[in-house]
Structure formats: structure tokens, C-alpha cells
Design a protein around this nucleic acid. Sequence first.
DNA 1: CAGCCCTACGTTGCATGCAATCGTGCGGGA
DNA 2: TCCCGCACGATTGCATGCAACGTAGGGCTG
Lengths: 230, 230
Amino acid sequence: MTRGLTSAERALATLRDLIMGGELAPGARLGEVELAERLGVSRTPVREALSRLAAEGLVEIAPNRGARVATWTVAELEGVFDLRSVLEPQLTAHAVPNATAADVDELDDLARRMHEVGTPGPRQELDALVPLNRAFHDRLVALAAHPTLATALAAAIHPPIVRRNFLTYDEASLRRSLAHHGEIVAALRAGDPEWARAVMTSHIANARAVMVRAARVQTADQVAPREESA
Amino acid sequence: MTRGLTSAERALATLRDLIMGGELAPGARLGEVELAERLGVSRTPVREALSRLAAEGLVEIAPNRGARVATWTVAELEGVFDLRSVLEPQLTAHAVPNATAADVDELDDLARRMHEVGTPGPRQELDALVPLNRAFHDRLVALAAHPTLATALAAAIHPPIVRRNFLTYDEASLRRSLAHHGEIVAALRAGDPEWARAVMTSHIANARAVMVRAARVQTADQVAPREESA
DNA sequence: CAGCCCTACGTTGCATGCAATCGTGCGGGA
DNA sequence: TCCCGCACGATTGCATGCAACGTAGGGCTG
């Protein structure tokens, strides 16, 4: 359907998208039969997909008690940012020598567009920021050409966290974040890996502060473990 | 058998041990029926275990073509050490404030025993070094009390690499490595996370140099993709 | 004689069926 | 009234069977 791959692969990709896209909220129960019907396959590939997602940390499986979308405490969220705070700067530093002028121009373009739609004012469209931000960071990861680091980072990020909290930036933090993107472009253009590493470290620290604060207030209305959000 | 867990869990643990223990050499073919008979279960839990091991990076699965124990190039090995070079120092720094005097004493004991059996001379027993080293590092990981970092590190380490190359230290590198352990204990006792972080960074860099060199020479006699070694 | 196709085997991928386990609601006893 | 025990329903865990894919070998054709 989606591609010529196996059913298990499609189930894996679909479930990942559903979780990362927020359609399956953290804590939502993942019944095998329900998912199998929803995806039009049998329980076997669903089980395999759930298993792999559990290995990735996106779902939690309790033996004989089924799977749920993974939840996390504030402490775990801080742990994730702790991890990012060492991985992403390292990745960024690796990207510097690999970036061509064209690459830098593309990143520059992304940074400028994020600045446009992100700056507070009449033209602000925070929703447009999410895909641009993702594109920017993905581009950096690709430039680093470092599969091991990239895999570790992908496993760590737990995209739902990022996604759910991305719109909670206060104005000052958002301005800092936008400025960081521009500065990373500058560091790339200058070919200075240590500069790039330092900016990315700041970038993550800034995001960490925002998201931990947002998670703290969110835990209040997460008392009832709702089933689904879609 | 092993425990009261599910068959899939046992298959997973068993396969992991077989791979990490070196009984299944990198590149060895992993037929589902063969493994199922060997483990006394059906193909289903074996498939699940293989899937999860693939997610962990220990095996590689080609669709419709089966699974093999993961192999790696020298570049990937360098990538792994790149990852460790940021993760393990961070973990060590986190361990510092959590270490009680008793913890430090235990680590000190391990470091001293490693020094005894590792120092070149009549009493040298390099084989005894492997479990001691592992105990030392595991203890540090536990002290860090940082599940996210610990998971990322465990996923990165690819123990077969470490295991296969551990006995290839030249004398100078080995002396440095043993000294690092003692110095980490000193940093813990002093309660200085930056000191501990710095020593661990050196420790990984030293190991990296040894293992990359060892891997380079090993690739020579790895031309023939042997099936199994046990 | 070389190259290609086609067939047959082995393996993986998936669906289905059955047994075991867990959660839950009800009834009996203290 | 409250608590413990029990049986029912629902769900997971695993085994088996069948279909699809990949691979290797032999025969045919140019």
C-alpha cells in the first residue's frame, strides 16, 4: 500500500507516525486486535511492530497486559535533554567540515523562514515552525554523516515530547531559539566546529528549560489517563 | 527455564548472550528454524527476538533474506567510540554526587585488583581483566542513576567489539587504562565531576586508539565470512 | 561454449487457532 | 459493611500451516 515493503514494516511506520503525530496520546492503550483491524493486517505484524517500538522506547509493554504509548516523568524528560545536550552538539560539530556552500545556503533559508513565521507579530504562525525546525535539525543530522550518533539521537528524542511542547515557548526563549539557528548557520559558514558546538549546546539548554517547565504544568491535567485523543 | 518470563524474552536474552559472548560470530547466519530448535521454542518468539535485536543493532535483517549477526566497518567502530566519548564522560560526571564512601571504596578495590592482574609481570592475568573492567564500568553506570543515558550507552557499545579487542592493548596503553581507573576513583573521592569527566574522556580516547588499530589489523583475516565460531 | 531462462528448493512473512494469563464483577463469609 | 475468593470475559503468548519471495542449479537456445 504505502510501499512495496513488508506488512510489519508498514505497521511499524504507521504506528510510529500515529504516536509521533500525537494521534495516539501517551498512555493510550494499544490493543493488538484493534490495531490489526485498523491497519488491515493480522496480529502478527502488529506484535512485531509493537515489539520494535518498545525497543525504541516509544511504547511500553507489560507482559500479558498489553502495550501502551510510553509516558514519561519530568525526571525522564530531563534525562532526555541531558542526552541531547551531549549528542546534538557533537553531531553539529561533525557537520561543520561536511557542509558545502549550498548546504549552508539551504540552512540559512530555513533559519530565515523560521525567523519570519516565528517572530511575534501579525505574521506569526507557530504551527509552521514545527516542520521548519524539524527540517533544519534533520538537515544538520544528515550533514554530520554519522550514523551511530544519528541513531542514538533518534532513539533518544521521543518526538511526542518535542511536538507536544513546542508551542509552549515563551517570547524570550523563542527569540533565543530563532537566533541560535542563525548563529549555527554563521558558525557553519565560518567553518568553526567549536562555535557550532557551543551554539547547539545553548540551543538545547534553552529548549530544555522551556520543555521542563511546560511538562511541569502539563502533569497537572494529566492526572486522568485518557485513552486516545483522536 | 531460565526464569518465569516469556519465551520471547528468554530467546532474546539467550541470543544476546550468544552474540555478546562471541559464540555467534559477526556475519553468522541466523536461520529461524535452526535457532528455534536450538532454543526449544517455535519460530514466532525467535522472530520477535531477532526483530528486537535488530532494533538494538546487534543483528541485521534483510527482508525475505534472513538475519545475520551485525558486522561493522572500521568507520562504524570509530563512530561508536565517538558516541562513547560523549556519553561515558557525561555519565561519569553524573555519578560523582551520588557516590557514597562505600561506593568509592568498592570501585577502589576493583581498580586495585585490575592493577594487580593487569600490570605486566609474572602475575599478569589478562583474562581476569575483562570481568573486572566490566564490573567497574557497570558500577559507574549504576551510580549515575541516569536511565536515559544508560540505555543510549548500552545500545551503542556493541559488546562483541569491546570483547574481541580487549586483549589487544599494548603495554603503554594498558598502563594508561589502569591508571585512569585509579584516577576516576580519586576524582570520585574528591567529589569533582569535571575531573571525573576529563579522566573518562581520556580513558575512552585511549581505548579508541587501541581498538581502532586492532580492528584495522583484524580486517585482514576477516576476508572469509565464516559462519560460526562455536 | 557462453549466456539466459525456468524450475525446484529452502527460507521468510503472515494468518489463524488454541492455551495460558490477567482483570473484573459477583457472591459468600466474617 | 467490608473483605476475600472465585469464576467469567477479554487479551496476550505461542505454535502451526500456508503463501510469497529469493536463490541455486540444470537445461535450452543462440
